[in-house]
Design a protein around this nucleic acid. Structure first.
Lengths: 314, 314
DNA sequence: TCAAAAGTGTTATCCTTACACCCATGT
DNA sequence: ACATGGGTGTAAGGATAACACTTTTGA
């Protein structure tokens, strides 16, 4: 009656890494060149097949990343297993499945090696960066999305599309929600507005090979959510940093500006950081005290993180 | 330099489903018998290999579940891909990897079919049920965990173990955190206190085949977290229900009792439900108004859910 | 002297928590 | 009458958001 165990046919299993860092005020992702699909070279994520020699999935991932980029990974967590879309090559493989287990990694230093390169992740998602106010490209995107909704087969379908647009791109009830990165990308994909889906221009951002941009979107959404209840930002910070630097990194990740005073108070009274003796001279203005992450906070609070204090202000 | 695409060797890929329901006051999981490892039959989750005929992972999962249990699934989300532990059969397969992509499914009705059976999930995690106060088995477990910490190779390792015990089982700072189901299970596993790891008795709950109990722990933790910011509880409720029923289901999921008045206010003012005209006679006491889920809340609030109003009270 | 960034303090407001209490039905 | 669960109101406390303001450096 019952099968003995989830044993399998012979699918292809790949490993892929979304490796993020935050140097200066820019959030970065590590990319490698990929022999082009059709025309020339494309950008992609470090990736490779799972091999029998790999002791675990995660160890296999680390091996591939070191080999392709020279980067060694610290914090690593599993993101999602992709297998449903753009991953069945049709007849050529006799219908074999192609899965890809994607991981999120956070690193401190950004030493690019071999062919790899660090890119700002807003290169792939320009409309996700609200630090300088509402991105102008959103107006054009919104217009195209509404046209897509209007072109729906039935009125109900049109209404559903409008609801989704409002939900993911704001306008509905509560405005922009920075965590819905993946939902926005999938909506643009369905509407045919991303280059991967055949859009003529790059209004919705730079394309990536295969479904790597979907993986990146998944990673950004996850990270934007996670900084609120886990102190993962510090995986991106040097051992000592100023509160201003910390704030700029959080702003870079979340894509929105924060209220300075409240951010400082929040960080301080949550016990996330402690002072060091050192101060730094720095770019213009009064020297700032250097802080370090307070590891003990993990034992004290149930969900220590940076509940973003909303408002935009200097 | 760069490999063309995450293409693979020949691992075995399985699909597994944690199917949850809430009938009356008990939270349930759907299990199937598994031809025993060693001695007799064990309980397991519905599962089966990914096959070339499956159009997507999720469709493959639905097919396996219907075939093994007769249950058709509504809400389904991917949980995690397990592959690192208990999943390399050693020499027999020449070192092939065995992965398992686990899914969480929520269903309304509990019609058992074939060999499958609904079990209370606290059968597998008795210490997770705090509805009748602190479970007595926790005292014995805590004693064994402390013995495990004391038996560490080095003092630092002993301290680390104590920290983890405090963090996952309470005592540290903030007491019991109902979301850390997986972390608790993994700690018990490492300490050798679960039957799967060879513990002599079932103090830490009933065993399951393979790593299925780990999957169940992952599912419970995810669900306990998710009800706080997504209205997933309603996937478990009938179309019309009383606020009392809703509260009892939430309590069953989270394993803690809630404060009645605040729960009602919360649900009401969040706009999660709306009244129907009907009332129900019910078990003892004044007849209650029947409510239904307000679907529009999805469009209105960024994260509609049931932020548990802490305290235990009638 | 001024710009720029660091850093401190205070107040209004909202949400959470807790407590007290009334209502309608079955036994 | 009373037990049981349904249902409403309100006051105290804490966290958030917004505001105003001082300090210390470099140009």
């Amino acid at each position: 009656m019952t099968e003995p165990e989830p044993i399998a046919s012979a699918p292809m299993v790949g490993l892929a890494a979304v490796i993020l860092a935050a140097t200066l005020d820019e959030p970065r992702v590590l990319t490698v060149p990929v022999a082009g699909q059709g025309a020339g070279r494309a950008e992609g994520l470090p990736a490779g097949p799972l091999e029998p020699a790999h002791p675990t999935l995660e160890r296999g991932l680390r091996a591939w990343v070191e080999r392709q980029t020279g980067q060694s990974l610290g914090y690593v967590e599993q993101l999602y297993t992709f297998g449903d879309r753009n991953r069945r090559p049709g007849g050529e493989d006799g219908g074999r499945h192609a899965l890809s287990v994607a991981y999120l990694a956070l690193v401190r230093e950004a030493r690019p090696a071999a062919d790899s390169a660090w890119q700002s992740w807003y290169r792939y998602f320009p409309y996700e960066d609200w630090r300088a106010g509402r991105p102008p490209s959103l107006d054009a995107l919104a217009a195209r999305l509404e046209a897509w909704a209007a072109a729906a087969a039935s009125p109900e379908e049109g209404r559903r599309r409008l609801d989704r647009i409002g939900l993911t791109f704001g306008a509905a009830g509560s405005g922009w929600n920075e965590e819905r990165v993946l939902e926005r990308y999938e909506l643009l994909f369905e509407a045919g507005l991303v280059p991967e889906a055949g859009a003529p221009d790059a209004l919705a951002g730079q394309a990536m090979a295969f479904d790597h941009r979907r993986m990146l979107a998944t990673a950004l959404g996850r990270l934007r959510g996670k900084i609120k209840y886990r102190p993962v930002v510090f995986e991106l910070m040097p051992p000592a940093f100023t509160l201003g630097q910390l704030q700029r990194v959080v702003e870079a990740l979340s894509g929105v500006l924060l209220h300075k005073q409240n951010f400082r108070r929040l960080v301080a009274q949550q016990g996330l950081v402690e002072e060091t003796e050192a101060v730094t001279a720095e770019t213009g203005g009064r020297p700032a005290r250097l802080m370090r992450f307070r590891r003990e906070v993990l034992l004290e609070r149930p969900a220590p993180g940076l509940r973003l204090p909303s408002g935009r202000a200097g």
